[in-house]
């Protein structure tokens, strides 16, 4: 009876783990999300590391570029210090945001650039609808997805490298139409600043490197340009947590534990013995 219960529990646990493993993650930006709004391609194709800012700041800036994409939770003073430390060691930090949540970090870093409220709309140059505008990186086109614009009026050290077209405007009241007084293009969308011995790049769109956007226009080229020879290290500590993601991460940790050489070889040695012993026992039952 006891053995039957054990087998039932084992089978149930296996099914739960299997279902969790194969069930797709749909939360924005997560590395495990292979859907349109995930960063699975950034993770697999560019071997991105996903960690909290404080851990990333300890990485070697010669090998990694720090990405802060679409933050939704507030930044702490420790986060700002970690970013400054990374910059002081000559690192490059890419801040991609369209909700303005990253303005708090920009303020903590004393950077004179801000993400403006509103949605960038280009009724003529877009990849389907005005809210998916085409922007210009030199002669190259970069497609965005519900982007904002940057306020660089106080920024003398900003080098704007990404502009919207002359047809674009910033839809401040989100009614999808141009109203008098709304800022008209060309608007600055991406800037680069040399500060603290490193480089900060601010892009007014969190979606530019999503799975569904990477192959659009010259988005991949822009990513390659920003990365140079480094790998992306993405901050995952400023996104809303998701139970499924957390459980999947737990399973990944468990898998990593089981992949340790000591554990792996122990299992390899003991499992045949246990299998033979248990099979005899089960046969007896």
């Amino acid at each position: 009876m006891r053995e039957e219960l054990l087998v039932a529990v084992l089978i149930t646990a296996s099914i739960i783990i299997l279902v969790t493993w194969v069930y797709p993650v749909t939360a924005d930006f997560w590395s495990l999300n292979s859907g349109w709004n995930g960063l699975e391609r950034l993770s697999s194709q560019y071997k991105a590391v996903f960690s909290p800012i404080r851990d990333i700041s300890l990485l070697d800036p010669r090998n990694y570029t720090l990405f802060i994409i679409g933050p939704t939770t507030p930044f702490t003073e420790e986060d700002a210090i970690a970013v400054k430390t990374f910059l002081r060691r000559g690192g490059k930090v890419i801040i991609a945001d369209d909700y303005g949540s990253a303005n708090q970090l920009l303020e903590m870093l004393d950077l004179p650039v801000r993400i403006e409220p509103g949605v960038l709309v280009d009724p003529l140059l877009n990849i389907g609808i005005g809210q998916l505008p085409i922007t210009y990186w030199g002669n190259k086109r970069v497609a965005l997805n519900y982007a904002a614009a940057l306020n660089t009026s106080r920024c003398s050290i900003c080098r704007v490298f990404l502009w919207s077209s002359p047809f674009s405007y910033l839809d401040l009241n989100n009614n999808g139409a141009y109203d008098p007084g709304e800022p008209k293009g060309p608007l600055p969308i991406g800037v680069s600043l040399n500060v603290y011995g490193g480089e900060v790049v601010v892009i007014a769109d969190s979606s530019v490197f999503l799975n569904s956007m990477l192959d659009r226009e010259s988005n991949k080229e822009l990513l390659n340009y920003l990365l140079g020879t480094t790998r992306p290290a993405v901050d995952d500590s400023h996104w809303q947590s998701d139970t499924l993601v957390r459980f999947k991460e737990f399973l990944e940790s468990a898998y990593k534990f089981l992949s340790l050489p000591e554990i792996k070889y122990s299992i390899a040695i003991t499992s045949p013995l246990l299998l033979v012993a248990f099979s005899r026992k089960i046969r007896k039952i």
Partner: peptide
């Protein structure tokens, strides 16, 4: 406004 939409699904 939404943070982003699926570009494949826009009409």
């Amino acid at each position: 406004p939404p943070r982003h939409v699926n570009p494949e699904e826009v009409q």
